[in-house]
Amino acid sequence: MKTSQMIARYKWYEIVGIYAGIAIFLAFVLAPFIEGFLVSLKPLGLLFSSPYRFWPENGSFRAYVTMWQSVPGFGWYIFNSFFISSVVTVIVLVLVVPAAYAFARFDFRGSGPLLGAFLAVNMFSGAVLLIPLFRLMRSFGVLNTYFAMIVPGVAFLIPSAIWLLRTYMMRIPRELDEAAFVDGASYFYTLRRVILPIAMPGITVVAITTFIGAYAQQFIFALTFNSKTEYMPLPVGLFAYFGRQEVVWNELMAASFVGITPAMILIFLMQRYLVAGLTAGAVKQ
């Protein structure tokens, strides 16, 4: 059904209410980003001026130039965040795809409690497990390395990825597997040649959400398990910016917006696949 046909089913005041609700929702979601961007344009002396002005007076993009000198190693911080998130995403996909297929197709003993345990992992904050994880990382000798941030990221993102991809694979008809088995295909061959091509929209959704999750959760692990600048991701690099006597807020906001640019570009390029995957997994095949 086309969008215009769906809208035609509502009365005018219902349409006004729908769009008003969307506008209010977007206002709450986008307001912090808009304010942060405007702060990056304001001169430092006018940030706390009274009365408050929404649009910056004498605004410029100067902070986007000076931040590269004010935050040493800023480009390297971005690379570290992108590298860590990419490695976490690849490892999660390699582990999650066969696991989700197994949970979606096989009724083995303990599958229900095991899925519940996966879900329970997401209920714990990373801060609760920092001390055990620190002792574990130290015993393996991986402190102050990329592995100290990659391994916890993988561990905390696998459960939600399994649940998401399992739900998608359960909607793929079992008749496809049965037809492949009749032709003599193994489970691995069926997964690789039959299921994976159909499940690519769902896998794309998992990849995007995993990358964003890994990009966002680096702070607490990197702050605890790493003290070397060369392995420092963007959140910790910007946090170190607060250690000075004066916080240059406009440059800090500019650095924050530049730092999230890789994730924003990824979402923009993959949004078509993201929407397709979410809508395809939302209906029964």
Rank of each mutant, 00 (worst) to 15 (best):
F124G: 05
L252V: 07
R193A: 13
L46W: 00
S4M: 14
A99C: 10
I7V: 14
I212F: 08
T66P: 03
T167F: 14
I158S: 04
A185P: 04
A179S: 15
V96S: 11
I203Y: 10
F54Y: 15
S160W: 08
G36V: 11
T209L: 13
L26A: 15
R53T: 11
A117V: 13
M149W: 00
F103G: 03
I24C: 01
W55K: 03
S40T: 08
T3F: 11
V94N: 00
Y52S: 11
V96I: 09
V29A: 15
S4Q: 11
K42V: 10
A282G: 13
P113T: 09
F188S: 15
L46H: 10
F33V: 09
K284Y: 01
G277P: 00
L115E: 04
F242P: 04
L44G: 07
I91K: 07
N122I: 08
F147V: 03
W68Q: 14
I208A: 05
T210A: 13
L30P: 06
L114C: 01
T210Y: 03
I84M: 11
R166W: 10
G202W: 03
G243E: 05
S85Q: 08
Y168L: 04
A280I: 06
S125F: 07
F106P: 04
W249V: 04
V151Y: 01
F74G: 02
E57F: 07
S256T: 10
V206N: 09
Y168P: 09
I265Y: 05
S60Q: 04
A155W: 05
A100P: 01
A214K: 02
P201N: 13
Q217E: 14
Y77L: 13
L164F: 10
S40N: 12
S4L: 12
F79C: 00
T229V: 11
G116T: 07
A254V: 04
L44K: 05
R135T: 01
L223P: 01
V205G: 06
A20F: 15
L176N: 12
P159Y: 06
W12G: 12
P72R: 13
T3W: 11
P32K: 10
W55L: 06
S111N: 05
M67N: 03
F82E: 03
L136C: 10
M123G: 05
L115M: 11
F74Y: 07
P159K: 02
F147R: 02
T209P: 07
K2C: 12
A276I: 02
M200A: 09
Q217A: 12
F83E: 05
Y52H: 14
Y231S: 00
I24K: 06
A255I: 02
M264D: 00
T261V: 12
F79S: 06
Y19N: 13
I7W: 10
F211P: 00
A27T: 10
E35I: 15
G202Q: 11
A27L: 15
R62G: 06
P98S: 04
G243R: 15
T204K: 02
Q69D: 14
E178D: 13
A148E: 01
T209N: 06
F124E: 04
F54W: 11
F83Q: 08
F61N: 14
T66E: 13
F156E: 04
A27G: 12
E251T: 01
